[in-house]
């Protein structure tokens, strides 16, 4: 009874937000190239992943079709589109796997720079919406793997909240927060959490202030990211007390707390690795950490 009521409410809510979307201001200019995109309204070339209306509305057809989606994944661990030496070299990661939405191409680099370094926070929803297909694919993958091991699952619509216990993000240092004013990973994570109604938790803090990652070489990054993070004790204990998921059905067999860690880009994986290690180290219960990043370089 209560579940049907809550689902009704949820549907009501999503209908409301969908109709509010209709009223939202709607820009005639493409967010990426800045050109007016009136003349390219009804070109309907197929796009590999399913795109949200928000995305289709804020980009012109050309920019939309130029997004280098990462749909073909070669490395099951780090989600790379090509064969991956890193994962062969160090096969044991502290996280289960990483998936990224796009390849970190030149145009994506420009887009991220516009958002992250220039501070154009209008782009946050756009980037978040680009993350959605990857998130959904990732969850579907997870669902498939589970239903394969457990009962031969009926093809029900995936309830995302059944698969994730918590969403968290890679933190930035307080100096950087003062400087930049926002944490891009946190913004992405909070969009995702809101959309799929998952709990967002601030599990990690960044202890040291380091040089921007982008100025460093590969080995420097690997070395530097160790002991960079710490846990937010309050949030972590909260997670462990109330994250034993009540809705998670009996046929879902895993016992570990499943964490989704969000970041903007995945380069060597050292940041994700460091975050995961920190979480494992301080958590009393077993964790299963998945990483979702916006771009894979």
């Amino acid at each position: 009874m209560s579940s049907s009521l809550s689902s009704l409410l949820q549907r009501f809510r999503s209908a409301f937000s969908a109709s509010a979307q209709l009223l939202a201001p709607y820009s005639a200019a493409c967010c990426m190239c800045g050109k007016s995109r009136n003349d390219t309204r009804n070109a309907n070339s197929p796009h590999p992943p399913k795109l949200t209306a928000q995305l289709r509305q804020s980009l012109c057809e050309q920019c939309l079709s130029a997004i280098p989606w990462l749909t073909r994944i070669m490395c099951p661990t780090c989600g790379r589109g090509i064969h991956c030496d890193d994962c062969v070299r160090s096969p044991h990661r502290s996280f289960v796997c990483n998936r990224s939405a796009v390849q970190y191409s030149q145009s994506m680099k420009t887009l991220l720079a516009q958002y992250k370094y220039r501070g154009d926070e209008q782009l946050a929803p756009l980037l978040a919406h680009m993350l959605l297909p990857a998130f959904e694919t990732m969850t579907a993958e997870l669902a498939k793997r589970q239903s394969a091991t457990a009962s031969r699952g009926s093809h029900k619509k995936i309830q995302y909240a059944d698969y994730w216990d918590v969403i968290t993000y890679v933190p930035i240092s307080s100096e950087r927060a003062m400087d930049r004013g926002f944490n891009q990973a946190e913004q992405l994570a909070s969009y995702l959490a809101q959309r799929y109604r998952l709990p967002l938790m601030h599990l990690l803090v960044r202890e040291r202030h380091t040089e921007k990652q982008s100025f460093k070489t590969r080995s420097e990054r690997m070395r530097d990211t160790r002991s960079l993070f710490n846990v937010n004790d309050i949030e972590l204990s909260k997670l462990q007390t109330d994250a034993v998921h009540p809705v998670r059905n009996a046929h879902l067999t895993h016992t570990a707390i499943r964490v989704l860690l969000i970041d903007d880009i995945y380069t060597t994986g050292s940041t994700s690795e460091a975050c995961s290690q920190t979480l494992h180290q301080y958590a009393a219960k077993p964790l299963e950490i998945y990483v979702l990043t916006w771009a894979r370089s």
Binding site: E121, Q122, A177, M178, D179, R180, G181, F182, N183
Partner: peptide
């Protein structure tokens, strides 16, 4: 002008 929550202030 766009309003966003700001970590700096």
């Amino acid at each position: 002008l766009r309003r966003t929550p700001c970590a700096a202030c």
